Structures are given as structure tokens and as C-alpha cells.
Simulated scan of single mutants.
Amino acid sequence: MKQINLRFFCSIVIAVCCVTNVVAQQQKYIAPALSDSNSWSIIMLPDPQTYQKFERNQPLFELMTAWISENIDKLNIQLVMCTGDLVEQNEMINPDGIAANQASKQQWASVARAFGRLDGKVPYVLAAGNHDYGYTNISVRRSNYNTYFPVDKNFKTQKLIREAGLNAEGIPTMENAAFEFASPQGRKFLLLTLEFAPRDTIIAWAKKVTGMEKYKNHTGVILTHSYLNSDNQQIVKENYPITDGNYGAAIWKKLVQPSTNIQLVFSGHIGEPDNAKGHVGFRTDKNAAGKKVNQMVFNAQAMGGGWYGNGGDGWLRILEFLPDGKTVKVKTFSPFFAISPTTQQFAWRTAPYDAFEFQMDK
């Protein structure tokens, strides 16, 4: 009888411990919030291609943009950036059901629909990646980008456009464009999107724009698809069948380093199956004016099951710009995990390469 009671007692203790542990884990979750009520933020979305190529994954990316929509006011979101590779294939009409089960038209429609949740609410600026060109990957510089993301799709973005470069077909699009905005504290920013491995003509265009007298006191920002690798090095060369492209090292040498106002560079592109560290990188150098240039790569497309997984486990980055005008806090968060109490304990990545801060020059 004593043995039975002891077993019963032990089972109760174990049950209580399990419940306590679950509650403790749930209590660890804290929803995203600004550390300073006067801060503002930019949301950085990684390459969406793996979300788009499978029908089952498409709702995950829509969940991410829906979460952004719900948090515009709470996080004082001023801008959303996406690192490119909006789709897996630009012109594929017959998916094999293994590498993808959505034709390119369906992929483009899906990513445009997801961003449509932000239309009229917050500006978003999207880089064009190598998968956004050619047939299944870049072979020629023809893209459906402008068909699904024309300049007037989101009037909030359209209001920020100041300059536009020509794509490879000679058309001014947001593949290469300059956007001007100001922080709530009045700091002026000039953000340039550059096509994947930008051509020399685009580098020259970007250099001309950032060198204009009216932008000399702006904080220059570059958003392009391929720039840094996970070893925090500027990419020198990639084996794509284009001959007129500039990768990270060349972009730095020809455009960023000679500038006096470019202080931020953002990119995506890289990845390693289910290895968060293989998707990220960061470095700081100085431009010709001696100002710090913080360069960040963030992607997640091979998290959540590799290249044919769920698209990236919903990971995104929250960049909180503090009102001191120089401190930026970087946080890595997943609305996908955060949506349920069962998985909320996994909603934050807190490794040093995922949660850190950096300083900008004023």
C-alpha cells in the first residue's frame, strides 16, 4: 500500500513539474516591443523564394506580412525591406512537383498578394535577386518584377521614390531606384535598391545619385541581393552566366567605399540547410569620409527543412533605431513560432549573431 502511495505521489510531482516547466517556458515569451517608446523600426524580410515555390508554404509568408501589418503602430515601423529572390523561378511554366509545385506565374502572384497586405499601410522596398531573372535562375536579365511590383502598387512606396535607374530592357523600374524618407527625429535617409550583381551602368547611376548635392547630408543605404557571405566577407565572384555583374567586393570598391554618405548595406542570398549562422553575416568598414559603413546579410530560406523545407520558419529581423540617432538594435524573430503558445518559446533567436546592436555615425 505504501508503495502504491509512493508511486502516486511521484506521478503527481512529475505532473506538477511538467506543468510548471510548460508555464515557465510560456512565461519566457515576450512579444516584440520597442525598448524606447521614441524609437522607430525597419523590418527586414529574407529571401521569400522557398515560401513561394510550394503551395503549402505560401501562407507562411503571408502570415509574416500580416504580422507586420498588425504591428506597424506598436513597433513604429517606417519601412519594410526584402532582400530579393522573391520567387524561385521567374519564367517556369511546368513545375516537376519536387523542386517546386507552383509555376512562376503562381509564385509571383503569391508574393505580390502577401505584400499586398501592406499596400497603403507602410512603404516596402524589395531587392531583385538572381532567381527573379531568366527562366529558373539568372541567365538573362529579363524579369517579371515590374509586372507584379509596378511603381504604383503601393502608394506609400511610390511617395518615397526620387530617382529611378533603367533595367536591362531600358525601362525605369524599382529594380534600381532611390527612395528618400526621414526618421521621426528628422534624420534623412536615401535608400537605393540595386539589381542582382548590378551592371557597371547601374553602379555609375548609383554613384551619381548618392553624390548629388541635395543628398550629401543624407544617410545612404544600399539594398541589394548578393553582397556578404557568412564569413563576413564581401563576395568576390559567383558562377552565374552573366558577364556584366558586380558582386559584393566590387560594389564596395566602386560605390560604397568612395562615397561620403553611404553608411548601411543590406543583403540576403546566402544560406546553409538548417544552419542559422550560414544565413547571416555582419561587418563594419569606413567610407571615404571616415564614416562607419555597417554591412549586414540576413537570410533564412533553408531553415525549416533545407532547400525544400517550409521556406524559413518565419524568421525576420526587427531593426530598432533608437532616438539617440546612432544606436540600432537587431533582433531576430519568427511570427510563425510566436502565433501559438505551444511554440512561442522558439520565437526568438538570441545567439550573438542574431541579437546585437551597432552604432551609426551621425
Rank of each mutant, 00 (worst) to 15 (best):
Glu70Gln: 15
Gln26Thr: 07
Pro46Val: 02
Leu223Asn: 12
Leu118Ala: 06
Ala168His: 14
Val19Tyr: 14
Leu45Asn: 13
Ser340Gln: 12
Glu62Ile: 01
Ile318Tyr: 02
Thr342Glu: 11
Thr136Ala: 04
Leu190Asp: 00
Asp244Thr: 11
Leu191Gly: 01
Gln25Phe: 05
Arg349Val: 03
Asn246Ile: 00
Asp285Leu: 14
Lys277Phe: 07
Phe336Asn: 05
Val140Thr: 15
Ile77Asn: 10
Asp85Phe: 02
Ser267Thr: 11
Ala66Trp: 05
Leu34His: 04
Ala250Arg: 15
Gly278Val: 12
Ile203Lys: 03
Val280Met: 14
Ile42Phe: 08
His279Met: 13
Arg283Val: 09
Thr136Lys: 03
Leu191Cys: 01
Phe356Ala: 11
Thr284Val: 15
Asn57Ile: 08
Ser39Arg: 01
Gly278His: 06
Met1Glu: 11
Thr343Pro: 14
Gly245Val: 08
Gly309Pro: 09
Asp85Leu: 07
Pro323Gln: 09
Phe337Asp: 06
Tyr247Val: 04
Lys277Trp: 08
Arg317Leu: 06
Cys17Met: 15
Pro341Arg: 10
Glu357Pro: 07
Trp252Ile: 09
Asp313Phe: 04
Asp200Lys: 13
Arg117Asp: 06
Ile318Thr: 04
Glu70Val: 06
Leu322Glu: 09
Arg349Met: 12
Phe196Glu: 00
Pro150Arg: 00
Phe358Lys: 02
Leu228Pro: 09
Asn299Lys: 04
Gly290Gln: 12
Val125Ser: 06
Lys277Gly: 05
Pro341Cys: 07
Trp252Thr: 04
Ala338Gln: 11
Ile222Trp: 00
Tyr124Phe: 15
Val328Arg: 13
Lys326Gln: 15
Lys156Pro: 03
Ala33Val: 10
Leu118Ile: 08
Tyr353Gln: 13
Arg117Asn: 13
Asp244Gly: 11
Gln344Asp: 08
Leu316Thr: 02
Thr65Arg: 05
Ile138Met: 08
Ala182His: 13
Ala250Cys: 01
Gln295Asp: 03
Asn246Lys: 04
Phe196Val: 00
Lys331Asn: 11
Pro184Ala: 05
Pro123Leu: 05
Thr83Met: 15
Ile222Lys: 02
Gly165Lys: 04
Ile4Asp: 14
Val330His: 00
Leu45Cys: 13
Asn287Asp: 12
Ala289His: 10
Leu264Ile: 15
Phe298Thr: 06
Lys216Arg: 15
Tyr227Glu: 01
Thr284Leu: 07
Met1Ala: 12
Val330Ala: 03
Ala347Leu: 11
Trp205Cys: 14
Asp285His: 07
Asn21Phe: 13
Thr20Gly: 10
Arg317Cys: 08
Ile242Cys: 09
Ala347Glu: 09
Tyr145Ile: 00
Thr201Glu: 05
Thr224Cys: 04
Pro335Met: 10
Val236Pro: 01
Glu70Gly: 04
Trp315Thr: 00
Leu190Arg: 11
Gly84Ala: 07
Tyr145His: 12
Val122Thr: 12
Thr260Phe: 06
Asn144Asp: 09
Ile4Gly: 01
Glu272Leu: 07
Asn154Tyr: 02
Gly134Glu: 02
Leu34Ser: 08
